[in-house]
Design a protein around this nucleic acid. Structure first.
Lengths: 223, 223
DNA sequence: TGAAGATATGAGTAAATACTCACTTTCACC
DNA sequence: GGTGAAAGTGAGTATTTACTCATATCTTCA
């Protein structure tokens, strides 16, 4: 039913001016997406804003979707870069430190073009998150889980996968909501402290759940 | 010559058959929204599925948006009902009990037509959440904050508003994600236990953040 | 019963917009 | 400067789809 549409560019720019054209189109698209939302982003409008003809746009992007896909691709690359810088550092720290750094990184990631981030995460009509972004989240999940497993002796959780899931969802949801919908810089500091305290307590502190690590809960269960 | 656009007010169904027509339209709309997504939901299709003419649809819904709005209205009424049943009970319990019940309620709420819930929360293009839903969330937030304030002596948090925010975001995000994207019934039990443990620990257990309740953090900050 | 209003019909319209293509211009290379 | 390929153009097309309205059919109630 849902015929998957082609997302790859039909033509790759080889000459310098063609590359410049692609850049100018992508930038205009981002600007318009932020300013007018997905609905208000028409290909003609993007071309006009870019100072380029619609034909040129369609030379490199076979359809509107592919243009948005390129915006996502670039944005996610930025997010990933910000995260991958912090991850190795976190792996070396103790639990409290790692949690703190994770939260800091989440904040930092949400500092990157938050307007675009909001539009991409809220306004683009699609079934579930983009596969590329899902892969990114999966990767972070795997890393965190591996870290938990390496530090198992220090932890008080029945399932490292579940713990990774809860921690990621908690941090992401709290930070995202704060940054996207109601940021003031002051909030952020205390939010980070509290999240950090809650998660560290959860991981290392309190009494474990009733039936710890009883059955194989399946690594597939908490992706 | 002023070509004035005729603005027909939406007609309210008075006769029984008219009410039946509205019902049949709303039900078809919900079915199609779930099955084909927002993009695939055309007014003609809804009318056809409902066994009714497009004209009839437009007799009661001035435009497509209003039809979706009605679906949201009904769905949110169900959510609210489920929550408002549990809230008074929770107020009477101790912190651990209240947290448990809150999580249970969140799960219960996400059991109501999860397919529709997913589409409404993910696929409907709009800027931020619907105002009606926002009001609902706000109400839950206020209640939880009030509860925290009443139990202040038992708690270990610097700011009840911030605590309410974190707790709600955490529960909602974890439960939503689990129910909408990767449910198996088994997961749910342990997830609830772990969330419960984490949040209770956070609220009552561990050492408070560095600078507790220093400045007026503003009740407006954590809505 | 029959008139007046309520309800239902669905072919047709208007408008928006993603996308094309015949053509022109620019570039790379000799 | 000539030539072939790459890049660029933008008026126009094709399609989709929300929405209308003249007309027909039901309901109510005097």
């Amino acid at each position: 039913m849902t015929a998957r549409r082609r997302v790859r560019p039909r033509k790759l720019p080889t000459q310098a001016r063609a590359k410049a054209t692609v850049e100018v189109i992508v930038e205009a698209a981002a600007r318009i997406l932020v300013r007018h939302g997905f609905e208000g982003m028409t290909t003609n409008r993007v071309a006009e804003k870019a100072g380029v003809s619609v034909g040129s746009l369609y030379q490199y992007f076979p359809n509107k979707e592919s243009l948005v896909a390129e915006l996502e691709r670039r944005h996610h690359a930025e997010l990933r870069a910000a995260f991958e810088e912090a991850l190795p550092q976190a792996m070396a720290l103790d639990v409290a430190g790692a949690v703190s750094l994770l939260i800091q990184s989440a904040v930092k990631v949400h500092t990157i073009n938050p307007e675009l981030h909001r539009v991409l995460s809220e306004e683009i009509p699609r079934i579930g998150p983009a596969p590329e972004f899902k892969a990114f989240e999966q990767e972070v999940y795997e890393n965190l889980k591996a870290y938990f497993e390496a530090r198992r002796s220090e932890l008080c959780v029945p399932d490292t996968g579940l713990a990774a899931f809860i921690v990621l969802r908690t941090v992401e949801a709290s930070v995202h909501d704060t940054m996207i919908h109601q940021t003031t810089p002051q909030n952020l500091g205390l939010l980070g402290q509290e999240l950090s305290r809650m998660i560290t307590l959860y991981l290392t502190g309190g009494p474990v759940s009733a039936k710890p690590a009883r059955a194989k809960l399946g690594k597939a269960a908490w992706h």
